[in-house]
């Protein structure tokens, strides 16, 4: 299975993960500061800044795009409960 790495800048941890994993699942396990509310892509609690490697995440769904827009999310920000890792190296921190 393809692997990727996700680095959580706020706690200084890099995690090797299988492709397809959502950012929130990794954040939860490693104890990073990205937290969630609804976990269904609506509340925007898990807004996350993608410091680098945003191209290694699956493109946002129409729903996620709308929620990001509604909440005035800056560029290269994603919902951790929705964003799936595809491969490569990704660096994130809580928004």
């Amino acid at each position: 299975m393809p692997k990727a790495t996700v680095t959580f800048e706020d706690i200084g941890v890099t995690v090797t993960v299988p492709a397809g994993t959502r950012l929130i699942e990794i954040s939860e396990k490693v104890g990073a500061g990205i937290t969630y509310g609804c976990r269904e892509g609506e509340c925007c609690t898990c807004l996350t800044r993608i410091v680098s490697g945003h191209e290694h995440l699956a493109a946002p769904s129409i729903l996620e795009d709308q929620v990001l827009k509604d909440n005035l999310a800056p560029r290269h920000h994603r919902l951790a409960c929705q964003a799936q890792v595809l491969g490569g190296n990704i660096v994130v921190k809580p928004a």
């Binding site: 200084g12 890099t14 090797t16 994993t21 396990k29």
Partner: peptide, 8 residues
């Protein structure tokens, strides 16, 4: 803290 690398 030292940077850690772990497997999921």
């Amino acid at each position: 803290a030292e940077h850690r690398v772990v497997d999921m």
